[in-house]
């Protein structure tokens, strides 16, 4: 029983971290219509940024500034935002499928740089030497995980509330206006490019925050954490949950990550010994089938976007 609780605490922690990232992605795609194919680069920027700023001093690469943890986490998010600013300035004017591939390329390049630039990132062996905040004071692994879970879930709730307020604000209305009809928005004197860029940066900062939490929880990050698989996973969560709907995004994350874990667990538990060697492959087939099936059955996601009325006075929309 205790084991189950311990596992659930762990599972919810990871799922909540991923949910924060999916919320950031939802701001970009669901609300603004930006097809970010390189989410993982911003996730990685947050993760590497946090560990470099908050880690112990290292001899073989820069970083290890041992900053006060919240500052390091913030620094990670800012690093993701800066990356988003550069990428956004270069690519936001592209058509969406070109934009998707261009950002995908950014993510591949990011992984590649992290893998090769040993002086910056520790190279392929990854970045370690990070002491989890307050771990010395909490001796029990389980208690620590519970505390960490509390921090992560409260950050998730904060992010959710922030985004809900944001999309109900005039700014949120503007985002959707640009998504639906850019020219109409222009005719009203709005600057779509600028607004898209701020949405892209804000979303990326949120994704970066998730990356920072992720690296903190593992006290480690390596190029293997920033492979395109993660982009795919995050997108699958958003699509299944329902793009444009923050609750859907969170629900989708828990569902997909749950399915991912449960299928591995189930196969290892119930498949016969020799077949176990093929479970990994079968798991991928199952996941593929779930995604295709979901899109065939309910392409708008489990929680479709609700049209939000921004002000109570505008009921006659």
């Amino acid at each position: 029983m205790m084991g189950l609780i311990s596992y659930l605490v762990f599972f919810i922690t990871i799922a909540s971290i991923l949910a924060i990232a999916v919320l950031g992605l939802n701001l970009q795609w669901g609300n603004t219509g930006l097809f970010n194919g390189g989410v993982v680069a911003f996730f990685g920027a947050g993760a590497y940024g946090t560990l470099l700023l908050g880690g112990d001093p290292q001899s073989d690469h820069i970083g290890g500034f041992d900053l006060f943890y919240p500052l390091a986490l913030l620094g990670g998010a800012v690093a993701a935002g800066v990356l988003a600013w550069v990428v956004g300035r270069l690519t936001l004017h592209l058509r969406h499928d070109y934009f998707a591939i261009a950002t995908f390329g950014v993510a591949v390049t990011f992984e590649n740089v992290m893998r090769n630039a040993e002086g910056l990132s520790g190279g392929a062996k990854g970045l370690r030497g990070f002491t989890r905040p307050l771990e010395a004071f909490v001796n029990n692994g389980f208690t620590y995980n519970v505390l960490f879970l509390l921090v992560v879930t409260s950050l998730l709730v904060c992010t959710y509330l922030f985004l809900e307020r944001l999309i109900r604000s005039p700014y949120g209305r503007l985002l959707r206006a640009i998504r639906e009809d850019e020219i109409a928005a222009c005719s009203l004197g709005k600057k779509p490019d600028r607004i898209r860029l701020t949405a892209f940066i804000t979303g990326s900062c949120i994704v970066g925050l998730a990356g920072g939490l992720y690296a903190t929880f593992y006290a480690f990050v390596s190029p293997q954490d920033v492979l395109p698989t993660l982009t795919f996973q995050l997108w699958a969560m958003l699509i299944v949950g329902g793009a444009g709907n923050n609750r859907g995004a969170i629900f989708g994350t828990f569902l997909i990550w749950g399915a991912w874990s449960a299928s591995g667990w189930g196969l290892s538990r119930f498949a016969p010994v020799e077949v176990q060697l093929y479970t990994g492959t079968m798991q991928f087939i199952l996941i593929g089938l779930v995604i295709v099936g979901m899109l065939l059955w309910r392409p708008q996601g489990l929680f479709p976007e609700r049209l939000v009325v921004s002000q109570s006075g505008c009921k006659s929309k």
């Binding site: 189950l4 991912w260 290892s268």
Partner: peptide
């Protein structure tokens, strides 16, 4: 009784598998 979990060379998946093995 060897319980085998596939890591898919994905750290998240591997850690999750390990955690499930230890806790469950």
């Amino acid at each position: 009784d060897l319980i085998l979990r596939d890591s898919q060379v994905d750290p998240k998946v591997g850690v999750d598998g390990a955690k499930a093995l230890v806790d469950l």
